[in-house]
Simulated assay, not measured.
Amino acid sequence: MADARPAGSATVLRVVLGKRLQVLREKAGLTYEDAGRALDVTHATVRRMEKAEVGLKLPYVEKLLGCYGVDDPAEIEGFLALAREANRPGWWHRFRDVLPDWFSAFVSLEQEANLIRAYEPHYVPGLLQTEDYARAVLRAGMPHARPAGIDRAVAVRRERQALLTRDSPPLLWVVMDETVLRRPIGGPEIMRAQISRLMDATALPHVKLQIMPFAAGPHPAMYGPFHIFRFPQAELPDIAYAENLVGASYFDQRDDVSAFLEALDRMCAQAPPAHTTEALLGGLRKEI
Rank of each mutant, 00 (worst) to 15 (best):
E189P: 01
R183Y: 09
I190Q: 13
A240E: 03
H206V: 11
E178C: 05
P232M: 10
P205W: 06
I239M: 11
M191H: 13
A234H: 12
P170L: 04
T202H: 00
I190H: 03
L171W: 12
V175E: 06
E235V: 07
Y241C: 04
W173F: 09
I195C: 00
G187E: 06
A216K: 06
I185C: 02
L209G: 00
I211C: 05
G217V: 12
P218G: 03
A234C: 03
S168C: 05
Y223G: 11
E189I: 03
R183I: 11
V174G: 00
R192W: 02
S196N: 14
T165P: 02
L172Y: 15
H219E: 06
P220E: 03
M191A: 13
E235K: 05
P220S: 09
T179Q: 09
Y223H: 14
E235C: 05
Q233T: 05
F226H: 04
P170H: 08
P232Y: 09
L181D: 01
A193D: 14
R197P: 00
P184K: 06
L181K: 03
P237C: 07
P220D: 02
A201Y: 04
A242G: 07
P232F: 05
M212H: 12
A215D: 08
I228D: 01
M199A: 15
T165Y: 10
D167G: 11
P225W: 12
P220V: 04
P218S: 11
M191E: 13
S196T: 12
E178M: 06
P237D: 15
P220Q: 03
Y223M: 13
V175Q: 09
V175P: 01
T165N: 13
K208S: 12
A216W: 05
G217C: 09
I211Y: 02
R182Y: 02
E189S: 11
L172G: 02
R230A: 14
A221E: 02
